[in-house]
Computed example of a mutant assay.
Amino acid sequence: MRRFFLTFFYLVCLSCNRIEAPKVENNSGIYKPKGLYSSSFGNETALDNAHVNGALIRVKWNDIEPEEGIYDFSLIDQFLLSIQERNLEWSLGIIAGESSPLWLFEDEKVDSFEITDFYGNVKVIPKMWDNQVIVKLNQLALALAAKYGNDEDLGLVYVPQMTANGIEGHFNGVSETVLINAGFTADKWVNAVKSTAVNFAMAFPDKAIAVEVHDLINDSAIPNQIITDLWNDSSLNQRVGAAIWWISGKTTYQPNLLAALTAFPGDIYAQAIGRSDQKERFKDGDYSTMMAQAKAMGVRYIELWEYEFVNNTFPNEFSDFNAYANATYD
């Protein structure tokens, strides 16, 4: 059951003294989540925090489709029990990339390539632009929708991506040369991600959809084209928004993409870049700058690490962001 809150209107002023007005009108006629969510499961007490509107369920593709066409949704259902007991909402993220099922790699079903990420981990990644990858992800979307598409408490579905961690739109330190040698081009990537996003949106016609974006081959134009084209696609009825799982209050990381997102007229869903005790990850070591940045950019929804809700680290800021989101977005 969705939570409803008494709301009041907040206008947010950044250090530059610029006031940002609400920018998204929900013309789709469907529910889109807003406010604060927990980004993970581990300590269920996070879901008991009064500021939590819902939680993200993220599972690996290879866990839910261990054999081609044979689905096991028990892990998702297990997490759902805790959410349903508390009358919360939920979002769904399927992790692809290295966590794609083994059968996808067998018998030359799809083409793949090897990367070494920022942390030195060697991974084999299916090529997002391989047509069979797009076909199999579409089949996955249809199976998920058949199971959960009518759940009114499911508010947001993330688009899986063949990337370093399987959902965020980047390769985490992999060189441009490695990607280009694997056959990566801007057009191939844009078309593959857009095709998969459209397939998920069509499978879930009553749900909001999100594509997580990062610069690719040092180019912010690639993610910007993806989210802009999807938002402007009239067949999708402005249901496909952008996601940023790296919001921090800082403006030095991917500044061009931050500018593009601030100008983006569509929905933005975010996840905090880290825990509040990881002070170095936030502007001036101040976690609250992340939520101020979110409001200035027009972010409607943030997933905070469960640490914040278990320890109720910033209750005033949590209350403030939820009030802002409820007052600003339908």
Rank of each mutant, 00 (worst) to 15 (best):
N26M: 01
N26A: 09
N27D: 05
S28Q: 07
G29T: 10
I30R: 08
I30T: 01
I30H: 05
I30C: 00
K32A: 14
P33E: 07
K34W: 02
G35W: 01
S39L: 07
S40K: 02
N43I: 10
N43T: 11
E44M: 11
T45I: 11
A46W: 13
L47Y: 07
L47K: 07
D48S: 13
D48L: 12
N49E: 01
N49I: 00
A50S: 11
V52W: 07
G54S: 04
A55L: 06
L56I: 10
L56N: 13
R58V: 02
V59S: 04
W61V: 11
W61E: 01
N62Q: 09
D63Q: 14
E65M: 01
E65Y: 05
P66S: 09
E67G: 11
E67M: 11
E68P: 10
G69Y: 05
G69A: 09
I70N: 15
Y71Q: 12
Y71F: 09
F73I: 01
S74V: 11
L75Y: 15
I76W: 15
D77G: 14
Q78I: 05
F79R: 08
L81R: 07
L81F: 02
S82M: 02
S82C: 01
I83N: 06
I83D: 06
I83K: 02
Q84A: 01
Q84P: 00
Q84T: 02
E85D: 08
R86G: 00
L88D: 10
L88I: 06
L88M: 06
E89S: 07
S91E: 07
L92R: 11
L92M: 11
L92D: 00
G93D: 15
G93P: 04
G93N: 12
I94S: 01
I94V: 12
I95K: 12
I95C: 08
G97P: 06
S99I: 12
S99W: 15
S100R: 05
P101T: 03
L102V: 08
L104G: 14
L104S: 14
F105Y: 15
F105K: 14
F105R: 13
D107Q: 12
D107S: 01
E108T: 15
K109N: 12
K109D: 06
K109W: 04
D111R: 15
S112F: 15
F113H: 14
I115Y: 12
T116I: 14
Y119S: 05
Y119H: 08
Y119V: 00
V124R: 13
V124K: 07
V124A: 00
I125R: 07
I125C: 04
P126C: 00
P126E: 09
K127N: 03
M128P: 09
W129I: 06
D130H: 06
D130W: 04
Q132A: 10
V133G: 03
I134N: 06
V135G: 00
K136I: 10
K136N: 11
L137V: 04
N138I: 04
N138D: 05
Q139F: 01
L140V: 09
L140E: 04
A141Y: 06
A141F: 02
L142H: 10
A143R: 13
L144H: 12
A145Q: 08
A146F: 10
Y148W: 08
G149A: 00
G149V: 11
N150D: 10
D151S: 00
D151G: 01
E152L: 14
D153R: 08
L154W: 00
G155K: 03
G155Q: 05
G155N: 05
